[in-house]
Simulated assay, not measured.
Amino acid sequence: MTHVLEVDGLSVAAGPAARRVPLVHDVSFRLRAGEALALVGESGSGKSMTALALLGLLPRGVAVTAGSVRLLEPGDRPPLDLVTAGTRTLADVRGRRVAMVFQDPMASLNPSITVGEQIAEVHRRHLGTGRAAAARQAVDLLGAVGIKEPGRRAGDYPHTFSGGMRQRAVIAMALACEPAVLIADEPTTALDVTIQAQILDLLVRMQDDLGMAMLLVTHDLGVVAGTCHRLAVMYAGRLVEEGGVGEVFDDPAHPYTAALLAAAPENAMRGHKPQAIPGTVPAPGEPPPGCAFSSRCAHTRPDPCDTAPVELVRTGARSVRCARSADLHRRGGLRRPAEATP
């Protein structure tokens, strides 16, 4: 499959140049057409900052300090680096080539404009569609994402929609121009489990229909199991493991990945108590001298875990940032009992 997005050495920091606090460190990954990649980790691991950095949507005072985000253009046109792209170029890319679905749909919708008008505006802005044709497209999109009576509901305001309906409307806006890449940042966080399943099924179906790449930011490994092909695990602003979902779930190579899997709430559904990870993620700007996970890791050793920064090592289709990974695998690995599988 062809790459549509290439992220290399992406680093993000907050504060003025003289006192920058690193938030994301040297993150690299690839997205292929038709592929879904999950970015997982605890709150504070850097997932959302990474996603926002891809489209230049970082909050005030936070900036990309290194790296590139290359969007591969169709045909023979050279890749577009979204890190160095100007404001007007980014405005053209957002919603047209790369779209984003945020956690809170109400923050993405204007309460004073009807839902149909907001979806139609995407078509008018990026595709130059006439007002009447854009309005028809908005109704079609609402129907495509499962809104009943889309012709009538297109004229309603966001506050009249339920939470699940608002998220469907936001997804319709994101997919209006059939983007090459969809970034979904915790798109089901505020929804009940039934609506969550419906929204995830919708995302997977639309991704398959459009052949687009999807980056799914989530802390829910159960969601990853049913929607993604690969996953990248983040901890303290760094990638610590990457690989195919099935491979990583069956045979985690990093102790943090194994700990996340053991802590999954799905264990309780099978009658097994989830195993909480002790401690907390290190505060930004205060990394330990060695492995950032060493103070919480059951497998840590003073040497080599605490002596020097650990590099991300790629072996075939897997990557891991653990000084003891090879040793742990020789001793039987970090495989979990079958009942702990999400």
Score class of each variant (00 low, 15 high):
1 M>G: 15
2 T>Y: 10
5 L>C: 10
7 V>S: 10
11 S>V: 12
12 V>Y: 13
14 A>I: 03
20 R>L: 10
21 V>L: 08
26 D>I: 11
26 D>M: 13
28 S>Q: 09
32 R>N: 14
32 R>E: 15
35 E>D: 13
36 A>E: 09
36 A>F: 07
46 G>I: 11
47 K>H: 06
56 G>H: 02
57 L>P: 02
64 V>P: 03
67 G>V: 09
72 L>S: 10
73 E>L: 11
76 D>N: 12
78 P>H: 03
79 P>D: 07
83 V>D: 05
92 D>W: 14
99 A>R: 01
100 M>L: 11
103 Q>E: 09
103 Q>V: 02
105 P>R: 05
105 P>S: 11
106 M>K: 11
113 I>Y: 15
115 V>D: 14
116 G>F: 04
122 V>E: 01
125 R>V: 15
125 R>I: 15
126 H>D: 04
129 T>W: 01
132 A>G: 09
150 P>G: 05
152 R>W: 06
153 R>S: 07
158 P>T: 14
159 H>W: 14
161 F>V: 11
170 V>T: 12
180 A>K: 04
182 L>K: 07
183 I>G: 10
185 D>G: 10
186 E>N: 05
199 I>N: 08
202 L>K: 02
206 M>F: 08
211 G>N: 08
215 L>A: 12
221 L>T: 03
227 T>L: 05
228 C>M: 05
228 C>E: 11
232 A>E: 10
241 E>Y: 00
246 G>P: 04
252 P>F: 03
258 A>G: 06
272 H>R: 15
277 I>M: 10
279 G>S: 07
299 H>M: 09
308 A>N: 06
308 A>Q: 12
308 A>Y: 06
316 G>Q: 04
319 S>Y: 01
323 A>S: 08
328 L>F: 01
340 A>W: 13
